[in-house]
């Protein structure tokens, strides 16, 4: 019982037949419109699963797109518009997480990891290249050479090398 109720709660998305951004939503001003598209790709649809509002067909996403464009026309900056949605939905709506203590690790983690990696590589290479590298290696001693020959021909004839 609980599970079907739950799944129905999520059905809001299915109530309208819209398909992503609709023609009637578009702005005439191409500059504003391209800003609108860019912004709506950064905002997450709150009822869908992992979709931005630009490509979502949920009713809420449509309303959000309309609001976003109205604010653009009103002359708000991108940051102000983003802030408007964050005020209402929290950081969850942002597909590009804001830089704050909780996301330092996210934003700097890979770079730090890379730096550490470079460090490890550097140390490795230094260790490995410290040995003499003049293009030739110590040749095998005569004893080794004999042992090698023995091993080399040990299985001769039994297997095709």
């Amino acid at each position: 019982m609980k599970s079907w109720l739950y799944s129905l709660v999520l059905m809001l998305a299915a109530t309208t037949a819209a398909w992503a951004v609709e023609p009637d939503e578009l702005l005439d001003d191409p500059v504003l419109e391209s800003r609108a598209r860019e912004l709506s790709k950064q905002l997450r649809c709150v009822v869908c699963q992992n979709q931005d509002i630009d490509s979502s067909n949920a009713g809420v996403a449509r309303t959000m797109r309309t609001l976003l464009r109205e604010r653009l026309i009103a002359g708000e900056t991108n940051d102000e518009i983003i802030a408007f949605f964050v005020d209402r939905y929290g950081d969850f709506v942002l597909f590009r997480p804001r830089l704050k203590p909780a996301t330092y690790l996210l934003w700097f983690g890979p770079a730090v990891l890379f730096a550490v990696g470079i460090g490890v590589v550097f140390v490795t290479i230094r260790c490995r290249s410290r040995a003499v590298l003049d293009g030739t290696a110590d040749p095998l001693s005569p004893d080794e050479e004999r042992e090698f020959e023995a091993i080399f021909h040990e299985n001769e004839g039994r297997r095709d090398p």
């Binding site: 293009g135 030739t136 110590d138 090698f148 023995a150 091993i151």
Partner: peptide, 19 residues
């Protein structure tokens, strides 16, 4: 030729170790 010689020595040593 030098590269080849060095490589041969390396592999021979591996063969020794394997043997």
């Amino acid at each position: 030729v030098t590269e080849a010689d060095a490589a041969r020595v390396e592999i021979k040593r591996r063969i020794l170790a394997a043997g």
